[in-house]
């Protein structure tokens, strides 16, 4: 694996340590030689070359790469919803076997249950955990408020906009208090304004809870705006080709010139890793 660390100029922007931040509510995550090969009609398709990642407790890491580079697959494997062809995933030092409520995956399409209203969706995980009805209602209320959906408790999924659905999904995930949030292009289908607002909300939730976040995206600026670190993936078969530490102060503005120039640095690396064909694809998608 090739490790390309961010230029020194970026590291000078360090925020002065994490001393004022609350203790991490998240746990560490370690990916050891995880690969994925899908069986196909003509032989097999290699989706993910062996990947090694170390993520500290409470860290916000973005996985950046073009569509189909296997980053979503890696996220599913970390979530325990898909098995790896080789290697293993360690959460807080313990090997991951199957899905667990310490790692919750958020999907691009929100994946809310249409037969439940907002309240029911947020309560879903709590119900599985065997929490009593009265307590469930209270916890759900609190998280619905955190994502600014007070008053929509009784709304059904089809009555909500895309951004509201993602908020419900975030509340549903946070309600069961996972240590790790795995986000699979959760804002990819949203308009730019809604996306910006959700970035801010996610950042403030993360700052308060200090959960470990692994965020998959193909949007370079989104990755730079949110991540402590950005891991750049090559096209299929996916592998990490570069790693950037982002020490810009938070909250970050997408218009901030340091952010913009860092994003273009990363874009250059990404271009190098890709063929001309994929280049055009990512140009189109990251704007």
């Amino acid at each position: 694996m090739l490790h390309l660390f961010a230029p020194g100029s970026v590291q000078q922007l360090a925020q002065g340590g994490d001393t004022h931040l609350p203790a991490p509510g998240g746990i560490s995550l370690r990916v050891e030689g995880v690969s994925k090969v899908f069986p196909a009609r003509s032989g097999s398709v290699e989706a993910l070359r062996p990947v090694n990642v170390d993520i500290a407790a409470g860290e916000f890491v973005c996985l950046l790469g073009p569509s189909g580079c296997g980053k979503s697959t890696l996220l599913s494997i970390i979530a325990g919803l898909e098995s790896a062809s080789s290697g293993k995933v360690l959460a807080d030092g313990k090997e991951v076997r199957g899905a667990g409520t310490d790692r919750v995956l958020l999907f691009q399409e929100a994946a809310l249950f249409p037969w439940l209203d907002v309240q029911g969706n947020v309560e879903f995980g709590l119900r599985q955990a065997g929490i009593r009805a009265k307590e469930r209602v209270e916890i759900a209320r609190r998280f619905i408020e955190i994502v600014h959906l007070k008053g929509f408790e009784r709304s059904f999924v089809h009555q909500l906009s895309g951004g509201m659905r993602q908020r419900v999904a975030i509340a549903r995930a946070l309600a069961i208090d996972p240590a790790i949030l795995l986000m699979d292009e959760p804002f990819g289908a949203l308009d730019a304004l809604t996306r910006d607002r959700l970035h801010d909300e996610l950042e403030s939730i993360w700052t308060e809870t200090r959960k470990t976040v692994v965020f998959v995206t193909h949007n370079v600026r989104e990755a730079v705006a949110l991540g402590d670190r950005v891991l750049v993936f090559s096209p299929r078969p996916g592998r990490i080709v570069a790693e950037f530490r982002i020490d810009l102060p938070r909250p970050r503005s997408l218009e901030d010139h340091q952010l913009v120039s860092l994003a273009s640095d990363i874009m250059t690396v990404l271009r190098d890793a890709m063929g001309t064909q994929e280049q055009e694809e990512i140009d189109g998608k990251s704007n």
Partner: peptide, 21 residues
């Protein structure tokens, strides 16, 4: 399948998965 994934991820298993999802 995404409903099943989400439900399993939120801790639904066995009978609860069948009845509630």
């Amino acid at each position: 399948p995404v409903y099943l994934k989400a439900a399993r991820n939120l801790g639904a298993r066995g009978l609860a998965l069948s009845v509630q999802v």
